[in-house]
Amino acid sequence: MPHPDIAARADLEPLLRRFYAAAFADPSIGPFFTEVARLDLEAHLPHITDFWESALLRSGDYRRNAFAPHLGLHRRRPLTAAHFGRWVQLWRAAVDGLYAGPVAERAKAQGERIARAMLGRLTDGGTGGGEGGFVPLAAVLLRG
């Protein structure tokens, strides 16, 4: 049976839980969540859900600055193209594992756009130094 598409806020929680379970366990990016940010998923999940609901379902409920926490992390432990590439791989796998359709495709594309924008702001915006944009290898790894 084919997967359904993302249609409502209720579809986002299982997706986000699936993604964060994989991300927390990942040896490359997991420490950013568990050691650096010490993310309390239960407390943070409503805000993350607001973000994705606004991005994918156009709810307009997200009123926070999504960049600020990533900048704080980057200042404590630099985030690299490889980290963002891994985030995108895990995000795409989480989406593909549960959903299929136009909104699911938009979720994957939006995740990649967000990763590129965050990395660009962290490395090009004078906040963290370093090379700008994804290196070619990291760009290839986005879709691996």
Rank of each mutant, 00 (worst) to 15 (best):
T127G: 08
N65R: 14
L56G: 02
L79D: 04
W91F: 11
G85N: 04
D96K: 14
R77M: 10
G97C: 13
D61Y: 08
V36T: 04
A104C: 14
T49E: 11
A93V: 13
A109H: 09
L71A: 10
L45E: 06
A37L: 00
T123P: 03
A94P: 13
R121D: 03
D96T: 15
A107F: 01
R121Y: 06
H74R: 08
A43T: 15
H47C: 10
A139F: 12
L122P: 00
S59E: 08
A37Q: 00
T49N: 03
R58Y: 12
D124M: 14
E42F: 05
S59R: 07
W87K: 01
R75C: 08
G126R: 08
R121P: 00
R113L: 13
R63V: 06
E112N: 03
F84Q: 02
Y62V: 04
A37Y: 01
E131G: 13
R113G: 13
G129P: 05
G111D: 00
V135L: 12
E131P: 12
H83Q: 07
L39D: 02
A82E: 10
T127Y: 15
L98D: 03
Y99A: 02
R113W: 11
R116Y: 10
W52E: 06
H74Q: 09
H47S: 14
E112D: 09
E105G: 10
V36K: 02
F51H: 13
P69W: 01
L122S: 01
G126Q: 10
E53P: 03
R121C: 06
P136I: 09
L39S: 05
F51S: 12
A117C: 07
V36C: 02
L122N: 00
K108C: 03
A107R: 00
